[in-house]
Design a protein around this nucleic acid. Structure first.
Lengths: 242, 242
DNA sequence: CGGGTGAAAATGTTGGACGTATTGCGTCGT
DNA sequence: ACGACGCAATACGTCCAACATTTTCACCCG
């Protein structure tokens, strides 16, 4: 038999894996709407031509992936899960943290990604911010300026960036950038004196640009600010491109 | 019995869930090192006092979470796996898909996020691409140009954007943009004639800018391309800011 | 009319049996 | 001695059939 190594036959997949894959497609495809109830396990088994046990193993995979949720009792069953964006954000934060701490992802990549994500967000925020956004941001900047305890200044800064992000008005960007911000936060705990004042001044300049709706200026000032933050938290960084 | 509603007794959890939870703790705890082999399913069942089927359902959950990997045959078994960024990406893709199909996230937000993510990536790719990146991208563009079957042209396009993303050299951006690209893909299945040729021409222009290391041009051309794509897949969009 | 009660429907769990992939060793032939 | 073939051992993969548990709802009775 000439089955050489260079022809790649599809590796055989266990039935439970294939069942899980097909169900996943149906769910992501929209054929099964969120909240909808799947057929009972026996019917699924009959439909796929496998046993109920195999179906259950597949359902466990989907349930672990958060795609379905099962309930017992009459009127119970397996339902397509309804997910909230916050859940995804929480998951992203914990997993990103793990990947960074295990060096699967470098801190430099994370810092760079923050810049690549947040600068376009600032640009967008300048175009789309509401009056409420402006008021909230101003309140945060003021509180940050007047707070000299030092304890919560990092909190204020984090809040400012989060609020700026939310002013972007894009749920996907919020979902992705929020975890990055959360992870980047603990890196700047013991800064040099004056660091927080400089940051507060930057925040005020960003807010000013956003208030005036000047997208280019907002992006530019944010970029400056983030570079400064990066140089403080990770001084070894030396990429002239950002 | 005074069991009021405000005391929250731990909701009973299925055995498979508890088994999965305990094994997960052992793994994250480090008690089970990556690569280490778990006891055989029968032994696990005996240890936890459950049947082998229940153990298997628990293992499917862990396997779906990317914590373990199973192999068949003698010297097979279940082994502790190492967490890979791809797992997080897969998870993100499925969750994002759900959020979009359940209208928790609008398609417009997704399309906009794609632009906000991919344009900075193109800029970065122009600065950091390797010769290998250029060769691979060129190969994809050529294959796309010469392929008139129509069937796989969407695949080529998807591949181009993925490869451009990987040329960015930032693991975090790859992690986040890849799912967005995957979800955006099936939206353009029945395009007007000439659409693919135009896309191919755009790809060639992007590659050219990246090859010359012109970050601004790469960003600009990519932005044009993505706007065009968005207008095709979602013509109702009317935001002049992007 | 209200409340207890049991049937019904679904998942949860068990035990055992057999299928299948993979490895490794032993035997046989050269 | 050495290699090829094949069989045995092992662990996962799959199926089946039955029973347990949880939850809801309709029915019956006071």
């Amino acid at each position: 038999m000439p089955l050489d190594a260079d022809i790649d036959v599809a590796r055989i997949r266990p039935a439970y894996d294939q069942v899980a894959g097909q169900l996943k497609l149906l769910i992501l495809n929209g054929s099964l709407a969120p909240g909808e109830r799947l057929p009972v396990e026996s019917s699924l088994g009959a439909a796929f031509g496998v046993s109920r046990n195999t179906v259950r193993e597949a359902l466990r995979m989907l349930s672990s992936a958060g795609l379905v949720r099962t309930e017992r009792g009459v009127n119970g069953g397996t339902f397509v899960a309804q997910v909230a964006p916050e859940d995804v954000s929480d998951y992203l934060e914990s997993r990103l943290g793990l990947l960074v701490s295990s060096d699967s992802i470098s801190a430099a990549d994370l810092a760079e990604a923050r810049i690549m994500l947040e600068v376009p967000c600032a640009r967008q925020a300048a175009l789309r911010r509401s009056e409420q956004d402006l008021a909230d941001l101003q309140a945060i900047v003021d509180a940050e300026r007047d707070d000299h305890t030092g304890w919560s200044r990092g909190e204020h800064s984090h809040e400012f960036h989060l609020r700026l992000l939310s002013a972007t008005g894009n749920a996907v960007m919020e979902l992705m950038l929020a975890p990055v911000l959360a992870i980047s936060r603990p890196n700047m705990l013991q800064p040099k004196p004056g660091t927080w004042d400089a940051a507060n001044s930057d925040h005020a300049r960003i807010l000013d640009a956003v208030r005036r709706g000047d997208a280019d200026l907002a992006a530019e000032v944010t970029l400056e600010h983030l570079r400064r933050v990066r140089d403080i938290t990770d001084p070894a960084y030396d990429d002239s491109s950002n």
